[in-house]
Structures are given as structure tokens and as C-alpha cells.
């Protein structure tokens, strides 16, 4: 099922399909290892509902929902 990373719920798992970001945000996503094909598990949301914490490439990454909107995912069933 296709979803944006920002729409995924905690404990959902998926694979990155495409990055639609621009400029600094794009560069940062790539450099933090958010590239097509990588596996991401949503760990939790911050107490105020945003940002989101995910596990990627064996470490914990945090990003805002607006930034997560730029990541298209294929969610595992």
C-alpha cells in the first residue's frame, strides 16, 4: 500500500520509494540515509504529535511531519 511517511502510524514498517523534497531538506534526507529502497519503521510520535521518530539503517532518526511528507513509502502489510 502506498502512503506518505507522514501518514504512517507508529510500528508500521515500509520501504522508501521516492523523495520529493528540494534543496536543504532533500540533501539532509539523503545524507541521513533516507534513500529509495531503504527500510523504515515508525517508532513513535513526540508528545505533541509532531515530530516523528523512526528507525532507519539501525539508528533512530527524527523528522517533522512536513519533512516526512516528502517521502513516498510502500507500506508493508
Amino acid at each position: 500500500m502506498e502512503k506518505l511517511l507522514s501518514e504512517m502510524k507508529p510500528l508500521e514498517e515500509g520501504i522508501v520509494k521516492k523523495i520529493k523534497a528540494e534543496g536543504k531538506i532533500k540533501r539532509r534526507l539523503y545524507d541521513m540515509g533516507v534513500t529509495p529502497g531503504v527500510n523504515i519503521v515508525i517508532k513513535k510520535l513526540a508528545p505533541l504529535g509532531d515530530p516523528v521518530e523512526v528507525t532507519i539503517r539501525g539508528y533512530e532518526l527524527t523528522l517533522r511531519k512536513t519533512e516526512a511528507e516528502c517521502v513516498e513509502m510502500e507500506v508493508k502489510a
Binding site: K24, I25, R28, M32, P51, Y59, E60, L61, L63, E67
Partner: peptide
């Protein structure tokens, strides 16, 4: 206008 990105590692 853009807010600085908040894409960072949460270290152990």
C-alpha cells in the same frame, strides 16, 4: 522563510 530542517539523529 523556511524553518531550518529538523532531521537529526537521536543518539543512544
Amino acid at each position: 522563510k523556511e524553518v531550518p530542517p529538523f532531521i537529526m539523529e537521536l543518539p543512544a
